[in-house]
Amino acid sequence: MDERGTDTARPRGARAEDATGTFVAHRGLLFTVAYEMLGSAADAEDVLQETWLRWADVDPGTVRNPRAYLVRITTRQALARLRTLARRRESYVGPWLPEPLLTAPDVAEDVELADSVSMAMLLVLETLTPTERAVFVLREVFGVEYGEIAETVGKSLAAVRQITHRARAHVAARRPRGAVSAAETRAALEAFRRAVDTGDLRGLLDILAPDVVLLGDGGGVARAAPEPVVGAERVAPLAAGLRRFGAAALRPAQVNGCPALVLRLDGRVDTVLALHIADGRIAGLYAVRNPGKLSRMEHEVELRR
């Protein structure tokens, strides 16, 4: 043993193999933590790379709880990146939306996980401070103990409890109203798609909530509304314009654990349209058109708790 408790007699290759196996086993969880912290798959992958580099220097045999250890590294790296991203997003052109993910059906089966990665919820998390977001995600989504969270974010136990209470109240005041089943979302999505396909403006007005909000993210690269569009009377004509692409181009998909629509043009993803449903009607439409955010729509992404 050396002074750090590492078993120096154990072959280095065997330690490296153990480290790799442990990291791969927890990769889905670590990606989910980073993504919920950042709202960006690309940045989450960078955080995982940084986490791996730090983990590779550790002998797994000296770590009592590898899962907790890896989550702690990932969270700290995500916190550092989140503070940088906050400055970058101040200069973002138009509304900013999270990077959409094509997710497997089993994500929707975990109702709490699906809710936590939905477009609507990730936008609520954007309104928290970086530390509040880390504490809320670790405690409310992943059930991490307060003591472990305190060590991760460098705060006292009492401070973490206060931050958790504050973040809960903040999210509760802004989170989407009421739980909606996947079946309800699919029904609303199909009604919307049918109205678009037939050019039924009345049908669109019926399925859209009076105060519906449309957010379009083009990132200054693709055409999108530069400001939020509010109200069914204003959103319906814009949605009706999708008819020119034809129903075949607008296909249902599982995005961030929820039913959504994907517009493909010339074989590539042009727009991801996620929905937020409240009281049986569409209360939020989130259209991601920035090409830099659409690469995760070709293959399913593993999300885990």
Rank of each mutant, 00 (worst) to 15 (best):
A167M: 08
G178S: 14
G203N: 05
D197Y: 08
A179R: 15
R166C: 01
R202C: 02
R161A: 03
T185D: 14
S181R: 05
T164V: 09
V171F: 01
V221A: 11
R161H: 03
D200V: 10
G218A: 06
R193L: 10
A188M: 10
R193H: 13
V196N: 06
L157S: 07
E184R: 09
A172C: 02
L204T: 03
A224R: 12
G220R: 10
G216F: 02
R177P: 07
V213Y: 09
L204Q: 01
L201C: 10
S181P: 08
A187Q: 12
T164A: 15
E190W: 01
A159L: 02
A191M: 10
A195G: 10
A191E: 09
R175P: 10
V171A: 02
R168M: 09
G220V: 06
R168L: 09
A188G: 03
L204M: 05
R223G: 08
A179C: 06
R166H: 08
A183W: 06
L205C: 04
A169S: 12
L201R: 15
G216R: 00
G218W: 05
R223W: 00
V171L: 03
L215N: 00
R174D: 11
A224S: 14
V180H: 13
A182D: 14
D211H: 05
D197K: 12
A187K: 08
E190M: 01
P210N: 04
G178M: 13
L189R: 15
I207V: 14
A179L: 11
G199Y: 08
E184L: 11
T164P: 00
G178W: 08
L214C: 01
A159I: 01
H165I: 03
R175Q: 15
T198H: 12
G219M: 01
L214T: 05
P210W: 09
T198K: 10
V171R: 00
R161D: 00
D200M: 10
G178N: 10
Q162E: 14
R177C: 07
T198C: 01
